[in-house]
């Protein structure tokens, strides 16, 4: 799959749920490209900013969109890696800030 195809497909499905891509288009395409790289090497789209271990069951929580996206969007208006943002951030109602890691360290191998 090409990055552009992934972008178009995800944009449609996610915006329908009030979740937007980051306005920084270069960042978005860089992260989508990284997701496709992870799909090639692991067999699933592991979060580009987290260390996947290659075991599908152990990494299930960081399949993109990760389990931590919802609470991060709620609290910070952006997901951990910055790919997705909330409408509040998208409309500049809140400011982008550093998102600390929510994933429990014991899940990292």
């Amino acid at each position: 799959m090409k990055v552009e195809q992934l972008y178009t497909a995800l944009k449609k499905s996610q915006e329908a749920r009030g979740i937007y891509f980051n306005k920084d288009r270069d960042l978005v395409f860089e992260l989508l490209d990284a997701l496709l790289k992870n799909k090639d090497r692991y067999g699933y789209m592991a979060c580009p900013c987290r260390l996947a271990c290659g075991d599908k069951e152990k990494d299930r929580d960081i399949f993109c969109p990760c389990e931590y996206r919802a609470p991060d969007l709620e609290e910070f208006g952006t997901c951990y890696c910055g790919l997705y943002v909330s409408s509040a951030l998208n409309n500049n109602e809140i400011e982008a800030q550093y998102v600390p890691e929510r994933r429990p360290p014991e899940k990292i191998f």
Partner: peptide, 9 residues
Amino acid sequence: ALSTCSHCK
């Protein structure tokens, strides 16, 4: 760092 992470880049 990670090769795929934008914050790392």
